[in-house]
């Protein structure tokens, strides 16, 4: 099997590594680069646990061919905030009780971030549609939706300042 060189930006940092043609993006992120924040719940595009943002859009990294990330900007949960400066979504997920087992959380937050990056006044329905591909078995989604709304408000407030 021929190894291919994959170049892409991961959380702002330029990456260059060898991948197999059959590797998926989640294999690269989790196994090769050791960023295990991105989770794998099904490996078939059916749960959203592996959601990352690629060129501004949420995608299921478990079915995105790794090579498709060539020259792309990929963001994962590890790249959107630091412990002293969390992303507002991370803060509101914590404060609104949107996190239980936490296995869906990284994917859920990445889906929500992709939405808020382009829309700071989403409706409840837009939020639902955004996270409809992210299965959460713990929370019943309500607190997650509230957290996304609250994060949108926070972001709007800081932007208006």
């Amino acid at each position: 099997m021929q190894k291919k060189i994959l170049k892409f930006k991961l959380n702002g940092e330029l990456m260059e590594l060898l991948v197999s043609p059959s590797d998926t993006l989640v294999d690269v992120v989790r196994d090769k680069l050791g960023l295990t924040g991105t989770k794998k719940g099904c490996g078939k595009g059916e749960c959203g646990a592996c959601t990352v943002i690629m060129n501004g859009q949420s995608v299921n990294s478990c079915i995105v061919p790794a090579m498709q990330a060539m020259d792309a900007e990929v963001e994962t949960i590890e790249g959107i905030g630091t412990s002293d400066k969390m992303h507002p979504l991370q803060e509101t997920f914590i404060d609104y009780g949107a996190i239980q087992c936490g296995f869906c959380t990284p994917g859920m937050i990445m889906s929500a971030k992709a939405l808020l990056d382009g829309n700071l006044s989403p409706s409840r329905l837009q939020i639902k549609e955004t996270i409809a591909g992210n299965i959460c078995r713990c929370t019943g989604y309500v607190k997650i939706e509230q957290a996304v709304l609250a994060a949108a408000d926070k972001l709007k407030a800081s932007k208006d300042k």
Binding site: G45, T51, Q57, N60, V64, E129, G133
Partner: peptide, 9 residues
Amino acid sequence: VGSLQIRNT
């Protein structure tokens, strides 16, 4: 179709 993540790709 499917979900937003699916539709995005």
